[in-house]
Write a protein that binds this DNA or RNA. Structure first.
Lengths: 140, 140
DNA sequence: AAGATTGTTGACATATTCTCTCGGCTATGA
DNA sequence: TCATAGCCGAGAGAATATGTCAACAATCTT
């Protein structure tokens, strides 16, 4: 029950893009100053682009930009794009995937938990992450 | 962002124990009728015992029983015992673990998310899982 | 037009973690 | 005393995560 680096670095990259939003396209090379390997950033940004969260500009002086305002991008979207759909088990969204073993008294609960989880993640915007990060606390 | 089989099977085992609570100690052999391998159940139940969620009775006619009523055992405790503490990243509970890379504007958010998550999981009792499972829906 | 810059893609290597499996041990009841 | 059960640690094989790399395509600058 821990995120992978893909999710964490992906979110870190989005925070970086938001903070440098006024500087035009940000290249992977520049983003790598965060400490994330350049070659790995390639994969992360490709996933974020496929998720429609960033726009890519190719060629010299190119780079990446957020496709929407930070207030319109949620943590749930970012994690979804980088880690795949957030769910506790396959039963939650696909009852057919429910193996004999799980005996699925639990299916309704998995479904409920996944819903609550997604509501939670979709309730946090990139803008809020940054605001709370700067203040060092969380707004209620 | 998916549970491992340890968490899912562990919960399934707890549901099984709750359903057979009146039959005295339940052996691993009997539990294996759920389809979970006997040798794997050993590990799962050992973890649940260390977490204080089940009592073991050794020797012939021995087996396992819930240590408390199903209404007093939460999904959060079960997943905590089998999967380890539920947290999104180490930053959430241990600020020192926060690497340079994460740049931790995100630390307050991880902390907030972990708290919400744990509240959610601790709000669901084993009793409720079973009740909803039988009814085929979730009580609100 | 040429060359430098930057994103795009797919394949691969290594490390880590998961998912069991096994063997030997200890405790208890018949 | 023996059969039944739990207890423990080690380890095998598979799957997944975490990068690395190389060749390619698009765009800008000169």
């Amino acid at each position: 029950m821990k995120l992978t680096t893909k999710g964490r670095y992906g979110l870190a990259a989005m925070v970086y893009l938001a903070r440098h939003a006024t500087e035009g396209p940000i290249s992977l090379r520049q983003m790598s100053e965060t400490g994330i390997q350049l070659d790995y950033l390639e994969q992360l940004l490709a996933a974020l682009r496929r998720g429609g969260l960033v726009n890519a500009i190719r060629g010299a002086q190119g780079g990446y930009q957020l496709s929407r305002a930070p207030a319109e991008i949620t943590v749930g979207e970012i994690l979804g794009a980088t880690e795949g759909p957030v769910r506790f088990c396959d039963c939650a969204t696909d009852a057919a995937a429910c193996s004999q073993r799980d005996h699925c008294d639990m299916q309704p609960m998995w479904h409920y938990l996944s819903d609550q989880m997604n509501d939670l993640l979709d309730g946090i915007t990139l803008e809020k992450v940054i605001a709370d990060g700067q203040r060092g606390g969380n707004t209620p």
